[in-house]
């Protein structure tokens, strides 16, 4: 990995606890994310990984804990504010807008950057017209970057799974995020598609310096591409460190292999 330099902590999660009714999803979890790094969250099914991402961008509001993002401390995030502050996201079960074309889906990714008023848009004049073109240029760059030019006018519902995942990544990238949250970006893909996706993720990190927080089940991939790994099990943090440290952590080994110790 060339060029990029891991910076200071930009996101610090402190003692986060999240409950749904009586069910504890996350218990007293703390970890941080540094600028420009690739940070992985791993753990068995039901460990609370997706809940963790949902706390980071405000889809879920934790009952306890604090979140410090870019030096600003708060109890919880709000999704659209998180987006405005540069956090973009993909989902475990693809969350594309099924009724829209690939191009329109990616264009929605730039919505926080479009400022034309409603009336200007209705008349399609001045700023609205200019913005549509400017942002189309930006979107086309993302389309080129992810190599999906040939499907830009296709309704996303008609695309195969692997391409849909890529379009979802494109939508997130179109927002030019400083932090990208990826929830199992390679789930359900074949080896070739996984390799493509790995390459895209690393390129994003490398070329744009985007900080990446990802959840992934494929251990080989995680160990290969991430700088630091946090391990969750039953909503608790059981490990945190470089891939090598985590690999040799006895608690992590037992959680994965079910060995008593």
């Amino acid at each position: 990995m060339s060029g990029r330099k891991i910076g200071d902590v930009i996101l610090d999660l402190q003692n986060i606890s999240l409950r749904f009714g009586g069910v504890k999803a996350l218990t007293d979890i703390s970890f941080n994310v540094r600028e420009h790094e690739v940070r992985a969250i791993i753990g068995p099914n039901g460990a609370g990984k997706s809940s963790m991402l949902n706390v980071i961008n405000g889809v879920y509001h934790p009952q306890e804990g604090r979140i410090v993002f870019h030096g600003e401390e708060r109890r919880k995030m709000e999704p659209h504010k998180a987006a405005k502050q540069g956090i973009a996201r993909t989902f475990q079960n693809i969350a594309l807008f099924k009724g829209m074309s690939v191009l329109d889906n990616i264009m929605t990714g730039r919505i926080t950057k479009m400022h034309a008023s409603f009336l200007e848009q209705a008349i399609h004049f001045g700023r609205a017209r200019r913005e549509e073109l400017e942002h189309r240029h930006k979107v086309e760059e993302v389309i080129d970057f992810l190599e999906i030019q040939h499907i830009r006018k296709t309704p996303v519902g008609r695309l195969p799974y692997g391409l849909q995942k890529r379009v979802e990544l494109a939508r997130a990238l179109a927002a030019e995020p400083t932090m990208l949250l990826l929830d199992e970006p390679m789930a359900g893909m074949n080896v070739e598609e996984k390799q493509d996706m790995c390459r895209f993720i690393l390129d994003v990190n490398d070329q744009f310096g985007t900080t990446i927080v990802l959840i992934e089940h494929d251990m080989g991939v995680v160990m290969d591409i991430s700088d630091r790994v946090v391990v969750l099990d039953y909503g608790k943090k059981i490990g945190d460190g470089t891939p090598d440290e985590v690999r040799n952590n006895p608690e992590v080994i037992s959680a994965y292999l079910g060995v008593a110790h």
Binding site: A95, L96, F97, T108, G109, I111, T112, R171
Partner: peptide, 8 residues
Amino acid sequence: VAAEVIGI
């Protein structure tokens, strides 16, 4: 939900 996450 996805719309809100995008910033809508």
